[in-house]
Amino acid sequence: PVIKQKLNRFDYECLIPIPLSAERYQQRGFNQVTAVLEAAGVRFQELLEKVVDTAPQAQRSRRQRLVEAQPFAVKPDVACEIKGKKLLLIDDVYTTGRTLYHAAEALQTFAPQSIRSFSFAR
C-alpha cells in the first residue's frame, strides 16, 4: 500500500493517529485515520484522546480553527511511550495545521526526542 511506503520513509519509533472525540466516534462509528492505517497494515499507538468535542473542521472558518483551545490530552500512564522517542503524528487532512500543532503541544510535555507529522491529504 502507498501509505505504508510513504510512512516507511520516516524515522520514527511511535506512530500516533489523531483521535476523534467520543461524540464524533459515536456518530461516525470509526476513526478514518486508524481505519486507513489498519487497512494498510501499519502499527500505531493511540496515546492521545480528544477531550473537547468540536464542530467538524469543514464547518468552521479558518479563524475559528486557529483560535480553538487545546482539544487533546495524553492518555494516563503513557509517558514512558513518549519520553525520548521519535514520534510521528498522523492525520487525514492538513488545512491550517492547528490540529497537528495541538497534538504535538500535548505530547511535548512528556519530552519526546522529536515530533513529526504526516497527513493523507492537503
Rank of each mutant, 00 (worst) to 15 (best):
Q45K: 14
K4F: 01
G97Q: 12
A79T: 15
P19Y: 02
L7E: 02
P1C: 10
T109M: 09
V78N: 04
A79C: 11
L20E: 01
T54S: 05
E46H: 07
S117G: 11
R43D: 15
A73Y: 02
F44L: 02
Q27F: 01
S117N: 04
Y12K: 12
A55K: 07
N8I: 11
A79G: 09
R28D: 00
F120P: 01
R98F: 15
E23C: 02
V42H: 04
Q32F: 01
Y101F: 15
A22F: 00
V78Y: 08
Q70E: 11
K50M: 05
P17R: 00
V2Q: 11
E49S: 08
A55T: 06
L15V: 06
G84A: 07
Q59A: 11
Y25C: 06
E46Q: 12
Q64P: 13
Q108I: 05
L87M: 14
R43P: 14
K4P: 00
A55V: 10
Q59Y: 10
E68I: 15
F10L: 13
F72K: 00
Q45V: 07
K4Y: 00
A58D: 00
A106E: 04
L37C: 07
Q32I: 01
P17V: 02
I3N: 03
R122I: 07
E49N: 08
Q45I: 05
F120V: 03
Y25M: 08
G84E: 08
V36E: 14
L100D: 14
S119P: 03
G97W: 13
A103E: 09
L100A: 15
G97A: 11
T99C: 09
L7R: 01
Q57K: 09
A39Y: 03
D53N: 13
V33I: 03
L89N: 09
P112V: 05
F72H: 00
K83I: 13
Y25H: 10
D11S: 15
A103L: 12
A39D: 10
Y12N: 10
E105H: 14
